[in-house]
Design a binder for these strands. Structure first.
Lengths: 243, 243
DNA sequence: TCAAAAGTGTTGACATTACACCCATGT
DNA sequence: ACATGGGTGTAATGTCAACACTTTTGA
């Protein structure tokens, strides 16, 4: 399978742990073969190059499966980064020359973000040194990946205001407090609990179950599920063109 | 200047004529050199391939300048089309083999849309057979350009609800009726005149001039300008996460 | 019995909708 | 004088924001 050397696909994998919005990152290390000195030590999203004969979306699914073991996961293309200088930092050039000599200088990357229930990811991690990092406390990142993650977050923030995608980050069954935390963390705002619940109560696609939390040292919360089906049947166009 | 044979940049150029939202398209014709028979006759957006050492955004600006003569125009990347079958229709293959034999089968295209004051475009048209077509009455289109235009329109509709970009389609000075028509046509909705004006009156960035329309056979309308400056100073975050 | 989070309603402010008549101009 | 689009206000309804106390559970 021949790779397309000037097109890569990167995937910002978001997860949520009830406290932070996290991104899945893989450590990149390079040691000088002579001196043993550590020349590069940082993190990247570790995308892949597209393959000849492969749709871009399929390449993104491949990256996601490779890193998380998951398939049929929310995945959205948000931007293509095509500046000529995106791989020109000294350490990135060193990395590419050492590891990927066939790759030319100007690689454009089609960036996707995906939302995963992070409890499902852990067992599948195939890469050593792949870890979740809070988007507010990113480690040193290689290439232009810090920028890509920042832009991904902006698109996510925009999208989550309009579409019911937050549920992708939660387990199938969740409580309203979890849902509220999710919105608060992603949008970086505080929400009023009662008003939030009023709003959710109008969403027919957030469905209460006859089931409560168990084993918590406080009043157990009602458990809900999300139904995309109901959402699709009940959504209506918003008509405001607010600026 | 070496072209990058597997990456192209397409630009959906939108214009507005107070009645329709239009797209600028160029005729594509191919005649059989032997029989003189017309083998292809349709329209395309006529993008370009990216050049080695050129930022994608610069490639898009180049396409736009080439087709309209305009620079410093609103230009927004919205999606990258990367399906392997996007150029595989028979006539498109014929076209590519005849005209661009160096281009491989799988070309991804990074698509931008731009918004232009179409009164400024006409004098510059460099291509014969470049014309405006209403998005509601597109001619037969080559490649996957019909899909690209459809998707561009969806992104435009979304964006114009949130950001003051409609002004890019109008002359510097415009009337509120023009602005209302613009919103109605792009969003494909009807708006109440009085309510529309109330809403615009709240927008500090739409500024009335001491100037009226001239030479119209009815009460002349007040003339307005848009100020991005004022907009940037007065915009506030919307906090609703409506779905 | 205490700590911790769940759950619940009302009010005032503001925004949105629906709707009909007079005005200024060119012909 | 008439045809054409410009310009304006009010009332009813819906939506949003602010706010505090009681409940249920495990420890």
């Amino acid at each position: 399978m021949e790779i397309i050397s000037n097109i890569s696909v990167d995937c910002v994998i978001f997860g949520f742990d009830n406290t932070c919005l996290n991104v899945l990152l893989t450590k990149r290390e390079l040691t000088d073969p002579l001196t043993g000195e550590l020349m590069i030590e940082d993190y990247t999203m570790q995308g892949h190059h597209a393959l000849v004969g492969e749709n871009l979306d399929d390449a993104a699914k491949r990256v996601l499966k490779d890193k998380t073991g998951l398939e049929d996961i929310f995945l959205k293309q948000f931007y293509t980064f095509g500046d000529t200088d995106r791989l020109l930092k000294e350490k990135d050039q060193l990395w590419l020359k050492t590891k990927f000599p066939m790759v030319r200088n100007h690689v454009i990357t089609v960036a996707y973000y995906s939302l995963v229930d992070s409890s499902k990811v852990k067992p599948y991690q195939q890469y050593q040194n792949t870890k979740w990092f809070p988007v507010k406390m990113l480690p040193e990142l290689g290439f232009d990946h810090e920028k890509i993650i920042r832009v991904a977050l902006e698109y996510l923030q925009e999208e989550i205001r309009k579409e019911p995608i937050g549920f992708e980050l939660l387990p199938e069954k969740f409580t309203l407090t979890q849902l509220q935390n999710l919105y608060e963390v992603i949008l970086d705002i505080k929400l009023d609990r009662r008003n939030f619940r009023k709003k959710v109560a109008q969403m027919k696609h957030v469905i209460p179950l006859n089931e409560k939390q168990k084993g918590v040292a406080h009043k157990p919360a009602q458990v809900f599920i999300f139904s995309r089906d109901v959402y699709n049947r009940t959504k209506k166009e918003r008509l405001d063109f607010s600026v």
